[in-house]
Simulated assay, not measured.
Amino acid sequence: MLRTIAMGVLVGSAILLTLIVFRKKLGWAWLSLFGTHLILAALGIYIVNFSGLLTEIYIPLNPATIGAVTVLGLPGVIMLLGLKITLF
């Protein structure tokens, strides 16, 4: 029962989001901008992992870390480095 309700909410929100994107004439520019941010986030994490400056620190590439760096940019990479140093 709960799973059916959750799927209904997911499908309904997807349909409404699609209607908003096509009704407001947002185009596909936002998608290319998001893709660019996503690629730069992964590149920033790769640079930290394989630069050799901090050999004991490795930031895993997973949706949470890439999402944080996509939203926050370069300060997100620094935040992840700080968290890795202080917590682990």
Rank of each mutant, 00 (worst) to 15 (best):
I20W: 13
I45L: 01
A68N: 06
L81A: 02
L2W: 08
I85Q: 15
G27H: 01
W30F: 15
G73I: 00
L80R: 06
T4K: 14
I5Y: 08
N49M: 04
L40V: 05
G52V: 00
I66F: 08
L54Q: 07
T70A: 04
P60G: 10
L19N: 11
G44N: 02
I20R: 10
I47V: 15
Y46W: 14
N62I: 07
L43C: 09
G8R: 02
E56R: 11
V77N: 00
V48G: 02
M1V: 05
A68P: 03
M1G: 07
P75K: 08
S51H: 04
L74V: 08
G67V: 06
L43K: 10
T36K: 13
L2C: 02
A64I: 15
L80C: 06
W28P: 09
G44D: 01
L43W: 07
F34E: 07
I20E: 13
S32Q: 02
L40N: 05
A14M: 13
L16Q: 02
G35T: 08
A6W: 06
V9W: 12
A64T: 12
F34M: 09
M7Y: 12
M1Y: 07
M79R: 13
F88H: 04
W28C: 12
K84L: 06
M79F: 15
L74W: 00
G27N: 06
Y58G: 07
I20M: 14
F88K: 05
Y46R: 13
G82W: 05
L26I: 15
I78M: 08
A41K: 02
L81K: 06
S13D: 09
R3G: 06
N62E: 10
I5A: 09
L61F: 10
L53I: 15
L74S: 04
V11P: 01
L31A: 15
M79K: 13
T4G: 12
A6D: 07
L26S: 11
L61E: 02
V9R: 10
G8P: 05
G12H: 07
I15V: 14
A14F: 11
M7G: 03
T86L: 11
L53F: 15
T4Q: 13
A42D: 10
R3F: 03
I5F: 10
I59R: 06
K84A: 09
M7W: 11
A6I: 14
N62W: 04
L19S: 10
I47A: 13
G8V: 06
L74M: 05
I57W: 11
L72I: 09
L80P: 04
G52K: 01
L10Q: 12
V69G: 04
V9Y: 12
M79V: 09
A68S: 03
L53C: 13
L40I: 06
T70E: 03
I45K: 00
Y46S: 14
G35K: 05
L74I: 03
H37L: 15
L74C: 00
Y46L: 13
P60C: 13
I45E: 02
Y58A: 07
M1W: 05
T55F: 15
G27W: 01
L16S: 08
V11Q: 06
L19Y: 14
E56W: 11
T4W: 14
L61W: 02
R3E: 04
V71G: 05
G76Q: 03
A29I: 15
I15N: 00
L19A: 14
S13G: 11
L17N: 12
